[in-house]
Write a protein that binds this DNA or RNA. Structure first.
Lengths: 157, 157
DNA sequence: TGCATATAATTTACACGTAAACTATATAAA
DNA sequence: TTTATATAGTTTACGTGTAAATTATATGCA
């Protein structure tokens, strides 16, 4: 079994569930690593890219905690993330006038350009990583992953 | 589409590959988070648990870099990991006499007990997370994940 | 009004991941 | 033997993830 060999595991898996969990974690890790390398070549970390993508997709400024919510990031970490993006000139903070507790974050022109540069390489990497699966296989993989996530998505934790 | 809704994405996915990559990353993250919580309740972090599992599975002491290799961890990080495990009394370092550059790491009795305590909860969590998939679905998921990883596992990066 | 409670965001502390530079030991070749 | 090269492991620096405590502002209710 491929995974067992990869892990140099001596014992076989105790259950199909265990094997699938390890497969999932390992595959996710590897994919994430490839994207991390791509982003780093452009001076970004994955979390930073994700924040910029959220802001571009939304098309307008968003409160900090709204961004954190979509990243599924714990709240405290978001502050430093926005700090570093702001220092890099990729986002700007603006305090809300109606509710002065809220701080809006908006994407800068520099960040829009950086994202545009990345669009093609990102699409290529998607294809490079999974292009060897057929359409039917990709659809089935998507179905299984979404089904796998069902017990987790009900309570958004 | 479930994932698109979860991400509050406004545009549909550009490709099946993109959707599968995001699905994979998201599902892997969620699963990892559940295990992290379980481990934390027992005073461990995922990386620490993984190291202890490798040592138990091997049944004997291992050189530090051999452990790092199996974790796919970059070399530098392993030092601190072993440091903290040693401080917690869960592993011991022993310098090799034949080659004094090599440092062996072995698991302690305390760690063996801790792992034994965790075996049942870990198996339960595997089942809780993926038990709602049929055997056929789990097998297919495993097949697809291993196929997905094929372009990555050839060169062990 | 005044106080309790809730919410937005930050700070602090610590574990982990990764790149680059470094130390110590081993091995091979001049 | 001496020098060059390779390998095992550590250190440092920085970005990220998470928990607990803190600050500032809003809101609900007496």
């Amino acid at each position: 079994m491929a995974l067992q060999r990869e892990l140099k595991k001596k014992q076989p898996f105790e259950s199909l569930e265990q094997e699938a969990v390890l497969n999932l974690l390992r595959t996710g890790d590897r994919v994430q690593l490839e994207f991390a390398r791509l982003f780093r070549r452009h001076g970004l970390f994955p979390a930073q890219y994700n924040i910029l993508r959220i802001l571009r997709g939304e098309g307008k400024r968003l409160p900090i905690l709204e961004i954190a919510g979509r990243l599924l990031t714990q709240v405290p970490g978001i502050t430093g993330l926005i700090d570093r993006l702001e220092r890099a000139g990729l986002v700007a903070r603006q305090r809300c006038d109606e509710d002065r507790r809220v701080i809006y974050v908006s994407i800068t022109e520099a960040a829009s350009q950086l994202l545009a540069e990345l669009d093609e390489p990102v699409a290529q990497l998607h294809h490079q990583l999974l292009g060897h699966l057929s359409s039917a296989e990709l659809k089935e993989l998507n179905r299984l992953l979404e089904k796998a996530r069902q017990p987790l998505t009900t309570d958004e934790t």
